[in-house]
Amino acid sequence: MAKVITLGETMVCFSPDSAAPLRYVSSFHPRIAGAESNLAVGLAKLGHEVLWISRLGEDEFGHYVQNMIRSEGVDTRAVRFDEANPTGIMFKETSRGETAVYYYRKHSAASAMEPEDLDESLFEEAEILHITGITPVLSESCRRTVERAVELAKRHGVRISFDPNIRRKLWGDRDYAPMLRDFCRESQILLMGLDEAKVLYGGESPEEIFAAVYGDGAVQLAVLKDGGNGAWASDGKQILYLEPWPCRPVDPIGAGDAFNAAFLAGVLEGCDLQTCGRMGAVAGAMATETDGDTEGYPDRRKLQRILENREQIYR
């Protein structure tokens, strides 16, 4: 049985073959993109059993997504194929080192997820449920599905890991911050971007934010990620600064999910807070060094070599 369960939408992502406004791009290549499946792939590469739950369209894109995720060692048996709704797609646009994304996911199969899509038996031997703030804002049925997953996790003693993963394009004119704070309070492991934490908790410094986090809710471990500036981790008793791992970034998308995956791998392995944080920092940095969300994620051997400061022999 999978030790980690996650659920959410994965889309087919069309990446341009040139850096320019999309009106001038004539060719694209497909990849997959989804915060939760990114995390699942990251954990699987590090040798952990992980289950990804979602709905995909009963179309060629849906089978492409499942094949890609399954090929990385992720358990996809809980995926449902939807004949009434299509697989979501998105397009990337790159220019001057920046990446913009355009979503075409309205009425997608994943947005039609229902609580009935969750098999309670899957939670009986799991250790961690990882959710994000993306899925519950896709639709009311998705919100109910995430709430049901949290309920099942609590019933079976499964720790809840939450990344708010704020997506303003999905929020529209609604304020989902109160709902996301509710999920924060339900979680034992909270993995946030520093900017997201400021939106949800209002503090400016890590100390202020951690004080707010631990003053309300069930949180046992919390992380504030700040990209190339490093990160901070706390267990409620101490705050550790995690230096950024040196890298040559190409595309930052997927780095936060890589950090989450490696950090949770450390938690599953019983590592101390410093080691969990260092694992996350290394994986997050490596994720930025390739195009695509997960292509740069390290496997167990590569991550271990870096953690042990062993030199890689190439020739």
Rank of each mutant, 00 (worst) to 15 (best):
D175S: 10
P178N: 11
D163H: 10
L122C: 05
C184R: 00
Q188A: 09
E124N: 03
E127F: 04
E140R: 11
R185E: 11
T132A: 12
L138A: 09
A126R: 00
I128S: 07
E140C: 01
Q188W: 03
G172K: 07
D175W: 08
I134N: 13
R181A: 05
D175L: 04
E124Q: 14
F123K: 08
G172S: 03
E127H: 02
E151H: 11
I166T: 13
L170T: 10
W171V: 07
H156W: 15
N165Y: 13
R174V: 05
C142G: 09
E151R: 12
A153P: 12
R155Q: 15
V158R: 10
V150F: 04
L191H: 04
N165P: 14
V146Y: 02
H130W: 06
R143M: 08
T132S: 15
H130C: 04
P178L: 10
E186K: 06
S187V: 01
R144E: 15
I131C: 02
R148N: 06
S187L: 01
V150S: 00
I160A: 03
G172L: 04
R144I: 01
I131E: 01
V137R: 10
Y176P: 11
C184W: 00
V137I: 15
S161D: 13
T135L: 06
E124V: 05
C142R: 03
A153M: 11
R143C: 11
F162Q: 12
R148M: 04
E125N: 07
L180K: 10
